[in-house]
Design a protein around this nucleic acid. Structure first.
Lengths: 72, 72
DNA sequence: CTTTATAGTGCATTATAAAGCATTATTTCA
DNA sequence: TGAAATAATGCTTTATAATGCACTATAAAG
């Protein structure tokens, strides 16, 4: 999952759950500015920040073996 | 995946691939100190750092819906 | 044991994430 | 339309991640 995809996932999930950035930031216990920074593709959140945000959205950070099959 | 699990995953993967911290740090383009910090459970890496490390190990960071089934 | 390779830690510096506040841009909807 | 809600951005401060270097600890091999 590339950075952009992570962002997209979070953003979509937040929207599906009908939560505003403000709401999510509050629930997750991260600064609103930090969340905005992240969702707008700027910045480079720490694992902890990403975890807190994901957690509230019912998601979790994980590591997966990369699929390296280059099926054209 | 909790923080400890992420660490364990990375560490195990590195060992399976027979790479030293020094080798991995170099390949991933992160400071040796940073990798050590991470693997020894201290610190809170940025997404970029985690990505660089995972990448070299053939893994990727992803977000997954949490399994919230509390089957006792 | 002693040597050698690898991993962990203390200390210091630099870069940057986290955060708040004020402001502007954009979207939404009555 | 235009008002209200939501999102984005500039500026600034504070906390801390990233880093290097030197040193210690541990493990593996002779």
């Amino acid at each position: 999952m590339h950075y952009k995809e992570l962002i997209k996932t979070i953003k979509e999930r937040r929207e599906v759950l009908q939560v505003t950035q403000e709401g999510l930031a509050e629930l997750a216990g991260v600064g609103l500015r930090t969340l905005k920074q992240f969702e707008s593709g700027k910045g480079n959140p720490t694992l902890l920040t990403l975890h807190k945000i994901s957690d509230v959205l019912g998601m979790e950070v994980c590591l997966r073996i990369k699929n390296v099959t280059h099926t054209k």
